[in-house]
Design a protein around this nucleic acid. Structure first.
Lengths: 165, 165
DNA sequence: GTTATAATTGAAAATGATTTTCAATTTCAT
DNA sequence: ATGAAATTGAAAATCATTTTCAATTATAAC
């Protein structure tokens, strides 16, 4: 089941990119890690996409920019990006961990087609409100949430109907 | 990180159990599969819990009832239960697939502590409304959704504060 | 700039959950 | 009862993820 996106987005602005770098470097400093060319390349590649990437998919993109960068480094950098909040995991229930970047994005949600894997992002400020409400009620300190809808997209629905005729 | 539940529930009534069996048997018939003692044992064990079980956890419970049932059978039966809607997958982002039963349950959601794994279930009918709304807008045929909040539970928050003092 | 120290890298191996294989067994419709 | 087809479970295979380790590189102190 291939990942396919229905909607699309503008690439990040130069300032957004620089700001994300800042956040990343500051995080590296804080935890005593070093600034390397590989990490830079991976950060840039990651930010340039608006897709929900698996580690392997990101690795393939990174490899186009620098063929010497290994899978392990991509894997580890993705963990670092998640640590400092630039990336976050999205579970599409297909057995692969996917990440999306969180920089300068509104809190958003996903609708995933269980047949073809197509996904749509949508924005519902109400959901953030519900998060606050519930966290308050149960004395949690909420940090994030996920909201995903599963179903059949229009295309797959039509295809299925045809099959039955 | 161990799974720990904060809330708890009543066990399923005898009628609920029988109705679930019906659904399961009908599904087996429909796809041309057979009714076996193992599958029965696994269904019952599964329904008797209100927890979010991994395949392995369910296997351990099943083994107490019938030590001859293997992991593979539990694994396969869980897939069948998911197929006919009696079970559904919940991703807690800890690398293990978890299932919960869907029989006679209100649409519910989870709040998970990222430190100790404690989880709370909560019920928000509003979320179902949002699902409908969005599905309609994007012409999806929505079948289900997941809504999860991540954060620190009260205990872990207190523990962390103490550590800083 | 040199040097010492500590982190980084990437290939390969290890891990761990999930899935498949296969021969022996069981179910179910006849 | 009988035979075709599905089931079972142990073991092996798969696949994503994570760790190991020796060689390399970045950083800070001099």
């Amino acid at each position: 089941m291939l990942q396919r996106r229905i909607d699309d987005h503008a690439p990040p602005t130069r300032e957004a990119m620089r700001e994300a770098e800042e956040i990343f470097y500051r995080h590296l400093k804080r935890v005593g890690l070093k600034h390397t060319e590989q990490r830079d390349t991976i950060l840039h590649t990651f930010l340039e996409t608006r897709d929900h990437l698996s580690t392997d998919q990101l690795f393939r993109l990174v490899r186009k920019k620098d063929a010497k960068i290994g899978f392990t480094t991509v894997y580890r950098t993705l963990k670092l990006l998640a640590e400092c909040g630039l990336a976050s995991e999205v579970a599409f229930h297909d057995g692969v961990a996917r990440y999306e970047h969180q920089f300068n994005r509104r809190n958003h949600h996903h609708m995933v087609c269980t047949e073809c894997g197509a996904s749509v992002e949508f924005f519902l400020p109400e959901v953030g409100k519900l998060e606050e409400e519930i966290a308050h009620k149960y004395h949690f300190h909420a940090t994030r949430h996920t909201f995903q809808i599963y179903g059949l997209c229009e295309d797959c629905r039509k295809r299925n109907v045809k099959r039955l005729v």
